[in-house]
Amino acid sequence: MKIESFGYTGEGMSRVYENGQWTVGIKNYKPANDKSLFNELERHNETDELFVLTAGACTLVYADGTDGEMKFGAVSMERGKVYNIPQGLWHNTITVPGTRMVLIEDPGTGMSNSEIYHLEDGEAEELRRLIP
């Protein structure tokens, strides 16, 4: 038996470890998560998702659509803190070049139990104004 290590230096997210109970991924900057380019939110309907910022900067944008209209918010992540995205919350990670995060989630989380919400122009602009 030996200690293993896992890494990922590519663009976007890659699952680097999975044991049947949880998955760990590394999420790096990609243009689709840039403040000027993002245009969608996602939600996982059955599982929470955790993020830890290790380098760069990230703003977690989110929307609560429980009352029939989207109410938007944003949280600027601090390095080394754990952020939980509860199941069912619309969200996205807005990053800058050089950003690296650790992602922890259930191994069953995927598009079969998740949804994508395409932001209308006005909604995207409203969220962009919340990002430092």
Rank of each mutant, 00 (worst) to 15 (best):
T47P: 00
V24K: 02
G12E: 12
H118K: 06
M1V: 01
Y17V: 06
T93V: 08
Q87L: 05
L119G: 06
Y29I: 01
L60G: 03
M70A: 13
N33Y: 13
G20A: 05
M101K: 07
N92I: 00
L103P: 00
V75F: 01
G65M: 07
Q87H: 08
G65W: 07
V96F: 12
G122N: 11
N39M: 05
G122Y: 14
N84R: 15
Y62C: 08
N45S: 14
C58L: 05
G12K: 14
S36W: 04
T54Q: 14
H91C: 01
N33G: 15
R128Y: 12
V96N: 02
G73S: 14
Y29P: 08
E42T: 07
T99A: 09
Y117D: 02
K2V: 02
R100Q: 14
K71L: 03
Q21I: 02
D34W: 02
S114H: 04
E78V: 07
V96K: 11
L50M: 13
F6Q: 00
L130R: 09
T109C: 03
E78I: 13
V82G: 08
Y62G: 09
M1K: 03
A32S: 14
F6K: 11
D67H: 07
I85M: 05
F6D: 01
E46W: 14
A57Q: 15
E49W: 10
Y17M: 10
K30C: 10
G10C: 04
N19F: 04
I26Y: 11
E42V: 15
E120Q: 15
R128D: 12
F38L: 03
L53V: 05
K71I: 10
Y83E: 09
N19D: 14
K71N: 06
I131N: 09
G10F: 12
F72D: 14
T99H: 08
T109E: 00
T99S: 14
E105G: 11
V24G: 03
H91A: 01
A74I: 12
A74K: 15
L53M: 02
I94D: 03
E105K: 12
P107D: 04
A74D: 13
I3K: 05
P132K: 03
E126T: 10
R79L: 10
T66A: 06
V52A: 03
F51Y: 14
G98R: 11
E40W: 10
V61T: 08
N33K: 00
N28Y: 07
E123Y: 01
N113L: 02
W90T: 02
L130Q: 09
G88C: 01
G7Q: 12
I131D: 07
T109F: 00
G122H: 13
G68A: 11
D121H: 14
F72W: 09
N39A: 08
S76N: 12
D106Y: 06
S76V: 10
A63C: 14
D34A: 11
A63F: 11
M1E: 02
E46C: 09
S5H: 11
E18I: 01
M111L: 10
V16Y: 05
T59D: 06
N92C: 07
A57E: 15
S5I: 00
G56P: 04
G25W: 05
Y8E: 05
P97H: 04
G20M: 05
I3E: 04
L127T: 13
